[in-house]
Simulated scan of single mutants.
Amino acid sequence: MGMWQKSMIAVACSKPLRAIGEAIGHKTGLADQFVSAGDVAGHVARAEALARDGIRVSSFYLGEYVTDLSQVRETVAQLDALVPVLDQTGLDIHISIDPSQLGYMQDQAILDRNVDHLAAKLNEIGLETPHRTIRLMIDMEDIDMVDDTLRLHHRLADGGYQVAQTLQARLHRTKADLRDMIARGAMVRLVKGAMAPPDDVAFTKRDDIDENYFRLSTMMLSAEAKRNGFFPVFGTHDRKLAWTIIEHAKAQGWSPEQFEFEMLYGVNQPLQRELVAAGHRLRLYAPFGKDWWAYAWRRVGENPRNLGLLMRSSMSKGR
């Protein structure tokens, strides 16, 4: 699995392959499988349609491995444009960001300025309610960025901003990081992890990652977590795991409104429908924009079965 994941990350980062892939992707429909829309208006329209089906979204503007400062500015501008339009609809304003797309690769001061600007923009809208989430969700990227990313979260949280954090179950250190987040009463999105970190810092076998994910999920549903106002978000497409978490939550006295599941846009729609029909909160990580190549192939790296989804999408829409 580690070699597969590293290979798919290499594909995602390859400029020659990206140029070829993007030339055919929109013609064949390859880009449509995991991307909600190409622009703000289309993304908001899709979010409204999903809301009618009881599904929330976390908005992500596409762009990974951003080395060009003009692309950083473009990301900020797009999210700036998105927030007021979402506010007008009354939908959740749940924005996911990668530190690497907002200035991490250029300069810490640039990252801080951009993230502070977006966090302040959300705070201006007001406090979230039981029916409306207003959060800046920080994604977790490479292993060498973990400490910097957590420091960013803590600085924003301590400053009173409505912020949340993603943690990766594949990392050995996540148990300690999660313990700190529970003590803070934070909102945490737990994912298995799309990166391929070294063996000495991460679980590499799928069964071991799954086992650690469930161990961490029980921490997120502990009495201490509930007492502290911690909000668990379970990022999984695994039906068995999802229902095991649901049963454990019931046993611990958590109501369906006190936690949520998050899935990738375009992945495992049957489970999406099943969770919503059973009365559980579901959010889709919904990217929008043009720079879809790296994102799509990272999803293939996470799960080889997604390669079939991409290929079938390409074949069926290319006819």
Rank of each mutant, 00 (worst) to 15 (best):
R18I: 04
K250W: 13
F230E: 03
K250N: 15
T133G: 00
I24K: 11
D144E: 06
D199T: 13
D116I: 10
A81W: 04
E124I: 01
M8A: 13
P130R: 04
T89N: 07
A296P: 11
L216R: 09
P197K: 09
S255T: 10
V188H: 09
T28V: 15
L309F: 14
I20D: 03
M1K: 01
E247M: 08
H280N: 08
L127G: 07
D199F: 15
T149G: 08
E22K: 07
P99Q: 00
F203D: 05
D139L: 15
S58F: 15
V76I: 10
A286G: 08
D148T: 03
I245A: 03
R299W: 07
L17I: 03
L310E: 02
K226F: 13
F259Q: 03
P198S: 14
Y61N: 10
F203M: 03
N303I: 12
Y161L: 03
V44D: 01
I95K: 03
P84V: 10
V83T: 07
V83I: 10
N268M: 08
A49Y: 11
Y285D: 05
V85D: 07
G318D: 09
A223D: 13
V11H: 00
S36G: 05
A202Q: 06
K121E: 12
E211W: 07
E22Y: 02
R215Q: 14
F203A: 04
M140F: 11
I55W: 01
V66N: 00
V201I: 08
R239W: 04
A164Y: 11
W254T: 05
I138D: 09
R227C: 14
G54K: 07
Y61A: 13
F261G: 01
Y213I: 13
R305Y: 14
L62S: 05
A23Q: 02
V66I: 12
V35K: 02
L282A: 13
N303H: 14
